[in-house]
Design a protein around this nucleic acid. Structure first.
Lengths: 227, 227
DNA sequence: CGGCTTATTGAAATGCTTCAAAACCAGTGG
DNA sequence: CCACTGGTTTTGAAGCATTTCAATAAGCCG
């Protein structure tokens, strides 16, 4: 059974795994990877920790973040199932930021050597470019938009991202605490609560413990487009 | 004369040029590049514009930025002589952001085809990783530090960057208007003025039209380290 | 000198944070 | 079934950071 995990993996058709399988084979990949499961809130990678493995989030949600000396946490990106973390690990011996599980997660660790990496340069270049583009969006977001616009835009993005992965219903999962959103968008948890309450009060979204629903796309978009 | 520009170029020993010369030769590089000069405030690249050329800032200062539909400008990064823009051009047909000259500039355009790019993958991977790291720093900066800390940190960084390039004196150049700094750090030009005045009043820095001087490193560092 | 761009200053308004208290919620053990 | 707990969200009030608007000053160029 263990020998056929890759065969049946949802993620084998896209991204890193697809490239590796194309270059080599499913068996080759299977031999170089192992799955690890971790409970919610576990730190998956600490800055400075040398690692030979590039990882793929098989199931659950995770996030990358920087822990500042004053205890403050700045989230860099949100990882959904299928996302790779981190392309940088293939270029650098260690990273300067952390990864943590937001929910229970299953993570696939893949061991690649220099030649393996060389064989998938095309894919890696593209993945690195995506990483840059995503971070640029965050800079624009943090630098030039107000809290309301950031949260509205985030919910729209997340909705689109989940639908692109095949989600269909009205309700979408949201496995983040309000303080996670606060750390993501550089605002206080209190203010996150207020903004979300306001969006709800305006009938733009509906919110439940671990899920949300967009009630009025154009309205929410209008808020997201405000300065 | 034109045939020997690369030979005498200050930047030939580092970065992209060094990699290309190592892989091929100075003559090879010379044949694929041409220099362009542009006055201050010129737009060097507009988003969406297809370009076969990767560029190196030979002289002057420039910046990358996103122009938002509401007219607001978010600067992404500051380019100093020797900096490449942009690694992303080698992975994507077009970019989503702009480059503009802050001063009069000389820009070296280099035409590379797919094989040329493949030959310097090692260098490109590293450069892309650097790009990511720099943007992550900006996210942390914008997300979790106050205006004072951002400006203090910027001056310290810039000072270090210029000294790493060989600058020695007390005074360092600063070819940015206050509204450039505002667009860079997500604050209003008025507030930039106030913060700089305050830093000056605290005897931490000295400021003149196109240059600055750090008067008290530990003090400025202390401000930069504040939340 | 006049006209342009950039920087400074003040006053008022807005956005956001902090602190503190209360409400809510899920799980635990009685 | 209830009370208790710990983690999370909501709410209010006060204070701080930053923006906006508007007016003035300073610097530079022709």
């Amino acid at each position: 059974m263990a020998g056929s995990e890759c065969e049946h993996c949802v993620h084998r058709r896209r991204g890193l795994c697809a490239s590796l399988i194309e270059q080599q084979s499913v068996q080759w990949l299977e031999a170089r990877r192992r799955t690890r499961e971790d409970p919610a809130r576990t730190v998956l990678y600490e800055p400075g920790q040398p690692s030979q493995h590039v990882r793929i989030l098989k199931a659950g949600w995770a996030a990358s973040f920087v822990l500042r000396s004053d205890g403050r946490r700045q989230m860099l990106s949100l990882l959904l199932p299928g996302d790779i973390f981190s392309v940088l690990m293939l270029h650098r011996p260690t990273l300067t930021f952390s990864f943590a599980a937001l929910t229970d997660v299953a993570v696939c660790h893949i061991a690649l050597n220099r030649e393996d990496v060389a064989a998938i340069q095309d894919f890696l270049g593209g993945a690195c470019a995506e990483e840059v583009t995503g971070l640029q969006r965050r800079v624009v977001d943090l630098g030039s938009r107000k809290a309301q616009a950031r949260l509205a835009g985030f919910l729209l993005d997340l909705d689109a991202r989940l639908r692109a992965q095949g989600a269909t219903g009205d309700w979408q999962p949201l496995f983040m605490r309000q303080y996670d959103l606060a750390d993501m968008f550089g605002m206080s948890a209190v203010h996150v609560s207020r903004v979300l309450s306001w969006l709800r009060h305006e009938q733009l979204i509906d919110l439940r413990p671990e899920s949300f629903r967009i009630l009025h796309y154009p309205g929410l978009q209008a808020v997201a487009d405000r300065i």
